[in-house]
Write a protein that binds this DNA or RNA. Structure first.
Lengths: 337, 337
DNA sequence: GTGAAAGCGCTAACAA
DNA sequence: TTGTTAGCGCTTTCAC
């Protein structure tokens, strides 16, 4: 059985397509009689509008793309959930794009060969530089997320990572810790994320008059708990002395926690730990994780606001928005007694 | 500046639209000379095809929807990643739909008012009954995932949950455990998932001649570690004796683990624990989790196969596919020495 | 208040 | 090998 079209309904009701369209859209100026007649035809035929055709005619698809490396990274799951909800509330649906953090994957996001499928893109790059983004960028509305500096002309939303890393580190300093390590940055070719977080860590140490000890930097080469577990275990085995760890993210913190537990090192008594992202699991590790919590809702809302302005035609300079964060204090690095 | 259309390119190159279209699609029968001429026009004008228009004309959108309650549930993140990858490999993009596990959310998935936006839907229901799904179902290709029995005529992919729950329980029995609890099912109105898993648990106990003790059933009312942590803690405080726990999913297991640790109960020596889903975290809890691992790739592939057949026009009876699972043995319930 | 018809940008059948 | 043209299904002036 063939799909029912607007025209079919019009014929059936003995009116024009325009009138049917008016009824479908609850356009006010329709006489009650006609409206009822049309409505009946609509129901009888079981008409459902074709989204594609409508979108072609209006030029809006009502679809937004959300792009990042991998949904199974808890921070991104959280982001996906929040943005998806917020987008739904504004009448958009969300296309999920995973880049695997590869340059090719990211390039494809920024320079899709096809136009028109999505109204706009929210994109958190990991591999691409801002220069490259600027070069490949098409004219589709785009909002960038993350620590990367954004190209001129592109909107960008982030939290103040340097400040947040300082806050995290200060929590440990207030606990009286002096040998504070940093876990989970790349061993070579720091990502923007690691780089700014290290910067905040370093700044907090400086302010407290604690000299930076490079041996306390424990790199680990993937966003994964495994890598950081190995890095921390190796450091312990090598006899490295430390009494606290700032972790690049909660995944790294979870790996660190496990390494410490396997070595019977008490957390937080012997070693205090701070994570980053406040992923759901952070409440359920043992001990639970003190962590930096980005204001996710605010981030999503801000990004969507900017994007909708672009979609509506704003074509000015790139806006830069800084959203909030907080330190969630749990067992792994409690407040000083 | 106005978008470049196929017609603009055609004019610019002095050929017909059809020819341009041929070049764009690498249609073989085009003379090299024309091809080159057109290609130049394409490049000069920076033409990018309009996806929407193409899709309207062909009737295929190349978009699939994946619907479930919440991406932040690790099992679903994993599912989303795997299906998204597999779909991308077949030329589809994935629309993410979250239902929050509510009836309204799920109804909307099954009975979208709009047609044509997506070519097909992969849907894991939690609240809707198979009867309701059958009633609300539109004519859009649909594949169901999960433990729910599927309505006649609808394709369905799942693992054998009863068998898997038995395997999980047997692992504990082989460890010599006799007081084996079950954690994480709903206290009232069991979901299909909990129900089949409980069934497998019960069957394994029976086979081993262990009587079912209802006091060992520890319900918890949400898919969350918090709920199960509370449930297990309460049981311990109440003096319940048990030496092993089968958990409805890894989230429940993680909560249980935390309750045990807070009470200084050794895992697996005093209490062995088995989870379900093999979420990434399962390797990093302390101790790491023995858990049921569904064959995710196979599940995604199977679902997509069925869906593509439906999209291609298959309109026969609902197929039922059972995909594999395995027990991943880790520290929380090791193999017997 | 309602109708007729011209797009939206592309595909594909049919001609040439 | 290339061109013409009629859709795809809906929206939206602009008349009536």
């Amino acid at each position: 059985m063939r799909r029912v079209r607007l025209e079919d309904v019009a014929k059936h009701a003995g009116v024009s397509m325009k009138t049917v369209s008016n009824v479908v859209h609850d356009y006010p100026h329709v006489s009650p009689a006609t409206r009822e007649k049309v409505q009946r035809a609509l129901d009888e035929l079981g008409y459902r509008p074709n989204a594609l055709a409508r979108r072609l005619a209006t030029g809006r698809t009502g679809i937004l793309a959300l792009a990042f490396s991998d949904v199974t990274i808890p921070y991104f799951s959280e982001l996906a959930r929040t943005v998806s909800r917020a987008a739904a509330a504004r009448g958009y649906r969300l296309l999920l794009e995973q880049t695997d953090g590869t340059l090719e994957g990211e390039r494809e996001i920024v320079s899709t060969r096809e136009a028109g499928l999505v109204d706009g893109v929210i994109f958190q790059p990991t591999a691409m530089s801002s220069l490259e983004i600027a070069q490949h960028r098409q004219d589709i509305p785009l909002v960038l997320l993350g620590e990367q500096t954004a190209p001129i002309g592109v909107d960008h939303v982030m939290i103040d990572n340097v400040a947040a890393a300082s806050v995290a580190t200060e929590q440990l300093i207030r606990l009286g810790r002096r040998r504070i390590g940093f876990v989970g940055h790349e061993s070579a070719g720091l990502t923007a994320t690691s780089s700014v977080r290290l910067m905040g860590y370093q700044r907090a140490l400086e302010s407290a008059g604690i000299p930076l000890d490079m041996s306390l930097l424990l790199p680990s080469d993937a966003i994964s708990s495994r890598e950081s577990e190995v890095a921390v275990a190796r450091a312990i085995d090598a006899g490295l002395q430390f009494d606290a760890l700032v972790c690049r993210d909660d995944l790294a913190a979870i790996g660190a926690l496990r390494a410490l537990q396997l070595h019977d090192i008490a957390v937080p008594d012997a070693v205090a730990v701070v994570g980053w992202d406040d992923v759901p699991m952070a409440s359920f590790t043992y001990p639970s994780l003190t962590t930096i919590a980005p204001a996710m809702e605010q981030l999503a809302t801000t990004a969507l606001d900017l994007l909708e302005e672009r979609i509506a035609g704003y074509d000015g300079v790139g806006r830069h928005r800084v959203t909030d964060f907080s330190l969630v204090v749990r067992e792994s690095a409690p407040d000083p007694a």
